[in-house]
Amino acid sequence: MAQQNHNMLEVSGLKKRFGDDIVLDGVDLTVSRGEVVVILGSSGCGKSTLLRCINGLESVDEGSIRIDGEEVAVGSRSLTRLRQKIGMVFQSYDLFPHKNILDNITLAPVKVQKRSKQEARAQAEQLLRRVGLWEKRKAYPRELSGGQKQRVAIVRALCLNPEIMLFDEVTAALDPEMVREVLDVMLELAQGGMTMLIVTHEMQFARAVADRIVFLDEGKVLENLPAEEFFENPRTQRAKDFLQTFEFKKQ
């Protein structure tokens, strides 16, 4: 089924408006299989909207998005099938509060992918053990810390066996001590060869995990460079200014 000649993700000429606001203004972006791309940019530059468009949570005004060669079209029948190839983790803790951890994870594999309960459970167990939360399988989301919830959210997305993972500022709402445990899970995923598109404000992490950095500003891609090069030698003044804001020096 996997067509190796396609890029995992191809975004071309993407435009998105909210009313009179142009949020995405002709974005081109490709992610090949196994690549880890981090999107950087100041708040309101359209990073989250871009991820939401890729997953079909927002409709697109112009341009196209292809996952594995197949067009993402809001409202089409193929969308729910296509979404199974895309795992997404959000900033807000988005676990289902009325279901325990195990049910949170196995709900979609069983109901959407029509897999057997035992098989979904077995995979959930293996994934939960990997993030060290198997003991919490019977707990409800409210009994977990923020970092634990985000690790479960990642497992929940992984349990659908997606081909690409989208992370939308998954550590932004966490206490600083909890950030590490979530980033470690993501780093491990990246090393395991998962294709990932990450929006984050953690610069150190971005540098460690990314193959490529895409710098967005006012809905446009200003830079699209290998990670080291971006951090060492950003081309645009805007990117330099942006990176400067994360540096602290004694005046």
Partner: peptide, 26 residues
């Protein structure tokens, strides 16, 4: 909250499944 709808849809659930398994029980 809206993110309950979003995350159900991101998991590939249809509108009916989103309401049936996520929204109505809550």
């Amino acid at each position: 909250p809206q993110h309950q709808y979003d995350s159900a849809q991101a998991l590939g659930m249809s509108r009916m499944q989103t309401f049936g398994y996520i929204i109505i029980p809550q």
